[in-house]
Design a protein around this nucleic acid. Structure first.
Lengths: 105, 105
DNA sequence: GAGTAATGCAACTCAATGGTTGCAGTAGTC
DNA sequence: GACTACTGCAACCATTGAGTTGCATTACTC
């Protein structure tokens, strides 16, 4: 009920730079170096972000020759949305029940 | 496209303690002091968490006599789910388009 | 094989944040 | 009016995390 593995995904999504990276990857797969040319941060910073994104399954690495390209795992985002939706449904029911009680039965 | 006000909400949801607080509030409205009796952290720590939850609209304060009870704003959770769902739909389309191109026209 | 261009790893800085304790203020209760 | 219990504020500590620079390593290219 406490959402299990959801929290780390939210934590990963709670950072603007990470969204910039996802947005950039949305234009097509890219390596950390390539991303560094498009974003105002270092390659290493991007590498770290990619690591946390990969950790929660939002992105996956793909070795191409001497570089490592990253690709957005679309399914993970949808899955997160669905799980959050399910959670919010539970919440709504719960809150409705409370309200009913509070409004004096 | 970068989701605007969504990121802070995710950041707020990316913390286990905050979920504990939300879960506890799910059993009914409660004050920071009341929550402190049920959770393994200080009242002040809870107060801070409540502040960030309130900041992103997940919770709202309600003065009752000399105490301030907090209530989960159910709608905000659902709204976040919906916005994330919409976002992931955009992503899926985008990724599908890329895949199509990548697979050689 | 030499050169080049990518990744990987490590150490470091700095700011944010989760947490604490302590105290002041405020508002019910007797 | 005195007591009590709750909130609010401030200072402080420790940890995490975003970001940097520097260097080693690996793997294509010529």
């Amino acid at each position: 009920m406490t959402s299990g593995t959801l929290v780390p995904v939210f934590a990963a999504l709670g950072d603007e730079t990470r969204w910039s990276i996802l947005a950039a990857l949305g234009d097509g797969d890219a390596s950390a170096s390539a991303l560094a040319e498009r974003l105002p941060v270092t390659r290493q910073a991007i590498a770290k972000h990619l690591a946390v994104l990969q950790e929660v399954g939002l992105v996956e690495p793909l070795r191409v020759g001497r570089e490592v390209q990253y690709r957005v795992v679309g399914g993970e985002l949808s899955a997160t949305a669905k799980r959050l939706d399910a959670l919010s449904a539970v919440w709504d029911r719960r809150l409705a029940a409370i309200k009913e009680i509070a409004e004096g039965l």
